[in-house]
Design a protein around this nucleic acid. Structure first.
Length: 721
DNA sequence: TCGGACCCGG
């Protein structure tokens, strides 16, 4: 929906089609912005070694007495969001620096936002009947879910239903229906008044089953029966809402807590921080964090893990650095979970080297990495194509007998797919087959193998995997199906492709936009109209609108305006990550059908709708064309377009930079198609003066002199490209 | 033995 909104409004404002006599130009126009999400970043900390920032001394840590007029959380945050958080004051974006005096008023001590006291647990005393009680609990756990069965089990109750006994049983019940039933049963017995703890324990069990409705029902019951809701109650409610992705509910209950005058303790506080973090409210998280610290709170590892995850989600490297520095200055030692979170965040921020150093630091500090640590790191090395580091780590894992689980196995397989390690993957896959039950290859493992064989062009082995999956009853998912179809398409095994598509759909695969993009790319590869028809028939089943667009653009009579409208409508309904592939494929289809003009129109539209950000970059010294995210056909089209535009600039004798360069990338992936090679031959065909740069990998360069004389030698033909 | 954080895909 958001994507649709982003597409619908700004485009027509920015673009009106010029009169037919003037050419549309792709380059040298102000790039379109489809959205303007402000990314929060900290101002730079000069060095993590610098002494910790002076934190304001907190007011005395006395929990405030409940006040009937306690401000709500949003009221409390208001002064922050209108002052400190104002995005219009760039010098104030450093939220976590010393708080601004606008809200630290020395004459009026700031209200504390959390209680530094943890909730006291009731002391546990030994229950002599523990054996019998555990036995009953097991019986309840094992018996049928039906009310009859549960009642029957409870009838033979071997003990007095005292408060302690009931609590012990309630604590031992594993599944929420049992806990809920038992809780209600205690209520009907009327042996003792229901206290908060019974509600809390029951809610905890309900949370396992994500029964937020029931939890909320119980909470309301507590309110109407005058039973106190404590921090444990609230944190349980909040974390359940969070797990159910009901962030508004979580915030609503947090607000309710404030309004009743109960001060959150650090558990509730970090739970709500996580809620804000998961709902993307970075600024709220930071102001809450800041205010907590200003109240004298020393955040623990869990808080930093929440912050780290939040920054990881947006790949905010400055944020990650801040978390590390903040822990250091507060003297909080990261534990394994914190390291895991930060490692993953480093991966999302695209910092494999820093992830590696962080991992070294973790091991040096004496911590043992667990499955999640290794999963994070292997994934990072795979995505970065750091084969050496990945293999070394793998070796180290085995040498140290570090823990493995099936997710780590699957991540290793994916890493092999990323790096192109076919034999290693096969060995690993065999290991999994030999292993005990919990690491047997599952749908993910098979998908990884389909990916490996598919991208390596090993059609027969990929097909073998596909058959084996159906023999073993392992579900084919849409991604595995996509890998296989892509591979069959490249091998021009269209009949097999059609069969695989049919079988997959029959087995429940719901084609998504990426699968459609894959089918579309096969359409562009097909050499006979018969094959085209077969693939289009599959595509018709999955995305009829896309097929209609293909037919439209193939028809020479279709006018540009029509293409534009239909293109826009298809792209708007397409998942963001599939939009550019769609456009690339459509361009390829045109080029293969000799519809060059249409290809240029489509590239223009793709650029117009923001599918190729950063395609063209200009500085005073150099202009560059970055075709790394383009298909071969699209890259050729872009080069022609660029040349045409440059010709015009030369013709008009406008200022030109010293250097021109076209970036094709080096195709670091073992299986990658070699855009550079194809680009080189196209450059040669055009006789353009670009040569592969020796200093800059994956770049073709041309000097101004060469380019100008080449353009002049082509005039007037160049102008009309 | 009443509550909070971290892992797999095109």
């Amino acid at each position: 929906m958001a994507a649709a909104a982003a597409l619908s409004t700004p485009l027509d404002v920015h673009f009106s089609i010029p009169p037919s006599d003037s050419k549309r130009t792709i380059f040298f126009t102000k790039p379109l912005r489809t959205s303007s999400t402000r990314k929060f970043t900290f101002s730079c900390h000069s060095s993590s070694k610098s002494p910790p920032k002076p934190k304001p001394k907190p007011p005395p840590n006395l929990p405030e007495s409940p006040s009937p007029n306690n401000p709500s959380l949003s009221d409390q945050l208001k002064p922050l969001s209108t002052t400190t958080l104002s995005p219009t004051k760039p010098d104030q974006t450093h939220l976590l620096s010393k708080p601004k005096s606008t809200w630290v008023n020395p004459t009026r001590p700031k209200r504390s936002v959390l209680s530094l006291q943890r909730h006291k647990r009731s002391p546990y005393s030994y229950n002599p009947q523990v054996r019998e009680l555990k036995l009953l609990a097991r019986k309840l756990n094992d018996c049928d879910d039906s009310e009859e069965a549960l009642s029957l089990a409870l009838n033979e109750i071997p003990f007095e239903p005292t408060r302690e006994n009931a609590l012990l049983i309630l604590n031992s019940l594993k599944f929420w229906p049992k806990s809920y039933f038992f809780f209600n049963w205690i209520k009907t017995q009327n042996m003792f008044p229901m206290e908060t703890i019974f509600y809390n324990v029951t809610m905890k069990s309900l949370r396992f089953g994500r029964q937020f409705q029931l939890i909320e029902q119980l909470a309301n019951e507590m309110v109407s029966n005058g039973i106190e809701l404590d921090n444990i109650t609230y944190s349980t409610i909040i974390s359940c809402a969070k797990r159910c992705n009901m962030f508004n509910k979580a915030i609503e209950w947090f607000e309710r807590m404030y309004k009743t005058g109960l001060m959150p303790d650090e558990v509730t506080y970090s739970a709500i921080l996580d809620v804000y973090a998961k709902s993307g409210k970075v600024e709220e998280v930071l102001s809450l964090y800041e205010r907590g610290v200003a109240s004298g709170w020393k955040p623990d590892a869990i808080t930093f893990s929440v912050l780290g995850k939040m920054f990881g989600e947006t790949g905010d490297y400055d944020g990650i650095r801040y978390v590390l520095q903040e822990m250091k200055s507060l003297g909080v030692q990261p534990n394994v979970v914190v390291y895991n979170t930060l490692l993953e965040a480093m991966g999302k921020a695209g910092k494999p080297g820093l992830a590696r150093s962080l991992f070294d630091e973790m091991v040096e500090s004496g911590l043992t990495p667990d499955e999640k640590t290794l999963t994070a790191l292997i994934k990072i090395y795979g995505k970065a194509r750091w084969a050496k580091d990945a293999l070394e780590l793998w070796e180290r894992m085995r040498a140290n007998s570090w823990p493995m689980d099936f997710i780590l196995y699957n991540t290793l397989l994916n890493m092999c797919a990323d790096i192109g390690l076919v034999e290693e993957a096969e060995r690993l896959f065999e290991d999994m087959k030999q292993s005990s039950d919990h690491c047997k290859p599952d749908s993910y493992s098979y998908t990884a193998m389909l990916n490996i064989y598919g991208s390596g062009g090993n059609v027969d082995k990929a097909m073998y995997m596909f058959e084996e999956m159906s023999e073993l009853g392992i579900a084919v998912n849409v991604m595995g199906c996509t890998c296989l179809i892509q591979c069959l398409g490249k091998a021009r095994r269209i009949d097999d492709l059609v069969r695989v598509f049919g079988v997959s759909v029959q087995r429940g695969v719901k084609p998504d936009d990426r699968l459609c993009g894959c089918l579309l790319s096969v359409v562009s590869l097909c050499e006979t109209s018969e094959d085209v028809g077969k693939v289009v028939a599959c595509l018709q089943e999955a995305n009829p609108n896309l097929v209609a667009l293909v037919k439209l653009i193939e028809n020479k009579k279709t006018g540009f305006e029509t293409v534009k409208q239909e293109f826009k409508s298809v792209i708007r309904d397409t998942a963001v990550d599939a939009r550019r592939p769609f456009c690339n494929c459509l361009i390829d289809i045109c080029r293969n059908r000799n519809l060059q003009e249409r290809a240029h129109e489509l590239l223009y539209l793709g650029n117009l709708y923001g599918l190729y950000p950063g395609l063209h970059n200009k500085t005073v010294d150099e202009w560059s064309l970055d075709v790394r995210s383009l298909s071969i056909g699209a890259a050729h089209t872009a080069l022609e377009e660029w040349m045409g535009t440059l010709a015009k600039v030369v013709e008009r004798e406008e200022a030109l930079p010293e250097l021109f360069l076209a970036q094709t990338g080096t195709g670091t992936h073992k299986f990658s198609q070699g855009l550079a090679t194809s680009f080189a031959s196209h450059v040669k065909k055009l006789a353009a003066p670009f040569t592969l740069s020796e200093e800059r990998a994956g770049c073709f360069v041309a000097t101004r002199e060469d380019l100008v004389s080449w353009v002049q030698s082509r005039i007037p033909s160049a102008v009309t490209v």
